[in-house]
């Protein structure tokens, strides 16, 4: 793999030997690994975009174990990396512990909230983006039954499911939404076989569009949907290209933008909480050359209308995490 410039290794070695502070940013991926075609890869793409545009270099690490979270944070902070961006809510506990020890370093956590003066927490309004793809699913479905396959059963994923169900019902009030979770542990993020089984089960119940919000597990969902000739919806990164003609759209979560912006801002990041929704272009539905034949003019119009409605505050999508309940779907 020669994705990363050799520069990087040498720069790091230099920094180590000289003990000098380099103001290079750093990026820490979660256990899913950086080429998961989803959440982590999206973060990676954002960093790569920054490298291409600025010619800068950054440090990155893929973790092998939970114990390394704190280690990676401290090592990068001591190395003088700034800002340090981490992808995943699992960093909340270690970051809360580490951040006060390095007051001059700015940390950016995606998908989690840590309250500290030198931490920026980025939260995405996944329910809004899921609403948009839900509408498309409701319109594309011929059977009136659509499915949802979640990864690990946590409030964050229920937030996806709830927004999705609201979108489906907005497009077709008589539709049925089936929601299944892959598991209750982090292993559920990387179990494409189980994702495939759940998809087959949902197809058996009549689903002809399945939305996968399940990290690596989703690849199994998309594959099975393509094999069985139904529509699927990707998540986080634009996954339309994986199975053109079968992937109806992807619920974009612009983790890449979040990483890119953080890298761009350097040490002038505004700390505190940032919510990225439809209005901020943080989430959305992906339309590109791989799926434009699947999206009718009518669907496009409905999509634009819904997007405008959410931006203007006319459509309010229920956020599962606000009250831990969902009126539109049961789990």
């Amino acid at each position: 793999m020669t994705f990363m410039p050799k520069l990087l290794g040498t720069a790091a070695a230099l920094a180590l030997s000289a003990g000098a502070a380099l103001a290079d940013p750093a990026l820490i991926f979660d256990l899913g690994g950086k080429f998961d075609k989803s959440f982590n890869e999206s973060a990676y793409n954002g960093a790569q975009r920054w490298v291409e545009e600025t010619g800068g270099s950054y440090n990155e690490v893929e973790l092998q174990s939970d114990a390394q979270r704190e280690q990676a944070l401290r090592r990068f902070a001591e190395n003088g990396n700034d800002p340090i961006v981490m992808a995943g809510f699992s960093f909340m506990t270690p970051l809360a512990e580490v951040a006060p020890d390095y007051p001059d370093t700015t940390f950016v956590i995606i998908d989690g909230v840590v309250e500290a003066p030198n931490v920026k927490s980025i939260i995405f309004s996944e329910h809004e983006g899921s609403y948009l793809v839900g509408m498309l699913a409701g319109m594309a479905s011929e059977t009136g039954t659509v499915g949802f396959v979640g990864g690990m059963d946590i409030p964050l994923i229920r937030k996806f499911a709830c927004g999705y169900a609201e979108g489906v019902l907005a497009a077709n009030p008589d539709a049925t939404v089936i929601a299944n979770m892959t598991g209750t542990t982090p292993a559920a993020w990387n179990d494409p076989v189980r994702g495939s089984e759940l998809t087959l089960a949902q197809i058996g119940q009549g689903a002809d569009v399945v939305f996968a919000a399940a990290g690596g597990t989703g690849l199994g969902v998309l594959q099975t949907a393509a094999d069985e000739g139904i529509y699927s919806i990707g998540v986080d990164a634009n996954q339309n290209y994986l199975h053109p003609g079968s992937v109806l759209t992807s619920m974009l979560k612009r983790v890449d933008n979040a990483v890119y912006d953080a890298f761009m801002a350097g040490d002038e990041i505004e700390t505190g909480l940032a919510m990225l929704g439809v209005a901020e272009d943080g989430v959305g539905a992906a339309i590109d050359e791989h799926n434009q034949d699947l999206i009718t003019d009518e669907m496009q119009a409905a999509l634009d209308e819904a997007r405008a409605g959410i931006e203007a505050g006319e459509i309010e999508v229920h956020d599962y995490t606000s009250d831990e309940s969902c009126p539109s779907v049961s789990f």
Binding site: M1, M4, K6, L8, G9, A12, A13, L16, G33, N59, V61, E62, L63, Q64, Q68, A72, R75, F76
Partner: peptide, 8 residues
């Protein structure tokens, strides 16, 4: 893993 371009 931290400082070299070696995959985990």
């Amino acid at each position: 893993a931290l400082w070299m371009n070696i995959q985990r």
